[in-house]
Design a protein around this nucleic acid. Sequence first.
DNA 1: TTGTAAGCGTTATCAC
DNA 2: GTGATAACGCTTACAA
Lengths: 344, 344
Amino acid sequence: MNKKRKKRVTIYDLAMELKVAPSTVSRALQDHYSIGQDTRDAVKQLALKRGYRTNTMASNLRKQQTTTIGVLVPWINHPFISNLISGIEAEARAAGYEVIISQSQDSYKNEVANARALFDSRIHALLVSLAMETSEYGHLTEIVQSGTPVIFVDRVPQKIEGYRVMIDNAATARVATQHLIDQGCRRIALLGGARNQVIYQERESGYRKALCENGIEIDETLILASNRLNMDEGYHFTRHLFEEGNRPDGIFSTMDIAAVGAIKYAHSAGIQIPQDLAVIGFNDDPVCEIIEPQLSSMSHPAADMGRKALQQALRIANLETPLPPKFVYLDTGLVVRASSLRKG
Amino acid sequence: MNKKRKKRVTIYDLAMELKVAPSTVSRALQDHYSIGQDTRDAVKQLALKRGYRTNTMASNLRKQQTTTIGVLVPWINHPFISNLISGIEAEARAAGYEVIISQSQDSYKNEVANARALFDSRIHALLVSLAMETSEYGHLTEIVQSGTPVIFVDRVPQKIEGYRVMIDNAATARVATQHLIDQGCRRIALLGGARNQVIYQERESGYRKALCENGIEIDETLILASNRLNMDEGYHFTRHLFEEGNRPDGIFSTMDIAAVGAIKYAHSAGIQIPQDLAVIGFNDDPVCEIIEPQLSSMSHPAADMGRKALQQALRIANLETPLPPKFVYLDTGLVVRASSLRKG
DNA sequence: TTGTAAGCGTTATCAC
DNA sequence: GTGATAACGCTTACAA
């Protein structure tokens, strides 16, 4: 340990100097009603003068609670998640809480270890977005059972009970697909994600539903379910479809970046967007406005989800008797840009 | 407080059940050399069975130190910073530390408040990237003086002494500019950032140096110094130059996204890239591979910077006598893509 | 090899 | 209104 770290001022030091009891100082600093105005002022003034700063560790230990919110996500450096975290942090800070972050890197093993570490630091509540690999939830049910509020955000678990803050993935996917249909598409390909993740299952089912509702037969060869959907996957699946003579006239991608891959292939093959192929993505990431033609997408309120999840967590943590698990759905929006706009 | 939160197992509970002293339990759990193998095993086994988890608050209070690293950045949801944080988190977690994050939103006031809050939670070390507004450093020198290691990362302060982890902005900018010159450019515009921020000052001076070294006269009308450089600024400044008949044949942008704006203008005006106008950015953000033609850039090892900064912080924190402030420079690289490649 | 006991800085409960 | 005192759960001299 760095021996140079200075000893800090405590309430004892203040009490001694003012010739009052430490408990009086403590109460004065918290504006306890029973403390006289003059002592209160004197204490606060001296505290300021001596640079007193409350020792959060001691206070937490005594009060048996922290003001720390744990956040467990797959990756910090993904646009959607960094926005989510940004929302969580802003809201938490405003409410007087700190945010401690850990990333599972989509590994189940890391997720378990991080959940434990967060639990050990006695977090006030935990916000979780699951790792791709995760399909067992013991490490999380443990925490739920201990009484610590756990809120699932976006990538929520399959069957476990609990609070959730998310979008209606099925409905949103249905809107995206319907939009393509409204633009005259009849052979719509799906760039889908891992089928063990609820959000991708639901996006796929929304897609299927939209086709059914419009009496369009589902062609399974137009559907991709990729465990790691990215730009390359989007590019290659699209090429595969065109080279096999299995041409779609529309593509709905459950991730923007894969839609970008599809557009890149179209460019390279001289396929006109949106005339020959209309494309829509999901998330409304910044790339949508970079790619040419600009990419239509479903906007997904990442920062809002963070804020809502945090509010939910605090509400639950401060209740005497826990509420029954509740789902909070956030609104999504259709953002139409050039990549899908065929008609006026 | 949620009354439903369960009381957890303590070393006292284990001690009682095993009929040994709490101190023995504590030592056994830490593999203290003085504890016999059998007691050690017995303790660990029971701890596991009863679901014992060490109380970090109590332990920290007693040891007068935490294993929490404070991170103070302008925005969590910026690609460069989210990568930085990702590197910090991964390295910290591997070393047994937690990371607590706060964002100033580029506001000086927030930065001060957040620095205080982090200081109060007795962080082990602080990593800071400054808010745009910040030009006073009292809130940070306070922390330095208390003995808590403070490491400045990327957006470092003007004059304050301290540890820094950064890239050599001047040299990197010089390489970028030289690259354009090597490609035959002679009238090179600069899309620069806020002049009160050291990193943008240095990038500008690197640009000037490269021109001087090549005997190219500096044309001040080709230089932009924008307080909020972004895609629109890049677009409009480029348009301004072309419409005024002040045509550049190359653009060096100190931010990728502004270079994207420049390329967008070029598209709209029928200017050929790289033949009529060669463009290079800075950061090597993901957008470089999205835009057409793909954008050349200077790669900037964000995650590595995070890792290095964390290592630096831990090293300092564990020294008896502080080292003299040191600057750590990370390597950058020239990434040539189609936007600047005129010759083989 | 293990036990005893003090104390980290707060806050809550009682008493005065 | 204020003070004394006992925790909170853990670590670490010092004793045994």
